[in-house]
């Protein structure tokens, strides 16, 4: 079950204990255990079908937990960037401002009207992601990189303490990818926002992440990128990944 408990200050942001998630009879995640400290930059990696997206969806409350528990520290606010918004439908009639405004969390059955404070927050999110000039543009007419910045602004507009991102850079060109990661690092280091990111991007893990969780239905590794690099058992997986990596790495793992 997914529950929020009152934890003492200084304790971890998220604790996952013996997490099992099933699709019908098929068990996707089988006994996952890990802890994410507040302010961490955690990269979740693993082969296709290893349960990475299932794990972040369970963390975001989108999938039911069959067994085990996910414990959030009190007051934690989640921001979420789903995988499918890598490109918005170009025909969808929504301005950047409208998309970001939809990120202000809903806490009641009836939505409330936007207050001046909400508008200020939307302005702050536009400013944070440096997309003020795009506010009136139609989302579907922007480049992939710009769209992801808008969706990141939507995830940030409610001042989350933890951002969960599911393969956000898969559809981006190398330059946009670099810019996107730089923004995440800025949010993490300057604003203290915790990051949990699903990625296949080996170079990004080495360069930006503070910790790595390697998954294949179970946790095979959880530690620092340096330890991950040194872990002989991981060499096999990373070797496979590196062969498929299309662009130069800033740092070989």
């Amino acid at each position: 079950m997914r529950e929020e408990k009152t934890l003492r200050a200084g304790q971890p942001g998220i604790t996952v204990r013996d997490l099992h998630v099933r699709y019908g009879q098929y068990e996707i995640l089988a006994g996952i255990n890990f802890t994410v400290p507040m302010g961490d930059f955690l990269a979740i990696a693993g082969p296709n079908g290893s349960g990475k997206t299932t794990l972040v969806k369970a963390l975001a409350g989108l999938l039911p937990v069959a067994k085990g528990e996910i414990i959030f520290s009190p007051g934690i606010r989640l921001g979420y960037l789903p995988q499918k918004t890598a490109y918005a439908d170009p025909r969808f009639p929504a301005t950047v401002w409208e998309v970001i405004a939809s990120g202000l969390a809903a806490r009641n059955i009836f939505p409330r009207a936007l207050t001046p404070h909400d508008r200020e927050q939307i302005g702050d999110a536009l400013n944070l992601l440096q997309i003020e000039d795009l506010a009136g543009r139609r989302i579907g007419m922007l480049s992939g990189g710009q769209q992801q910045r808008v969706h990141l602004a939507r995830a940030m507009v409610d001042n989350p303490s933890l951002l969960i991102l599911d393969e956000p850079t898969g559809a981006l060109d190398p330059h946009s990818r670099e810019c996107f990661y730089s923004t995440l690092v800025h949010l993490n280091r300057q604003h203290g926002v915790g990051i949990i990111i699903v990625t296949h991007d080996v170079s990004a893990i080495g360069e930006y992440a503070a910790s790595v969780l390697y998954l294949d239905r179970k946790v095979l590794f959880h530690g620092s990128p340096a330890d991950f690099e040194a872990d002989a058992a991981m060499e096999h997986y990373f070797g496979l990944h590196q062969r498929h990596e299309p662009h130069d790495h800033h740092r070989a793992l």
Partner: peptide, 16 residues
């Protein structure tokens, strides 16, 4: 606001 959210991105709407 809710109708817009579920129309644009239902998954995100659920999380929010």
């Amino acid at each position: 606001r809710y109708l817009f959210s579920i129309t644009y991105d239902e998954e995100f709407a659920k999380v929010s």
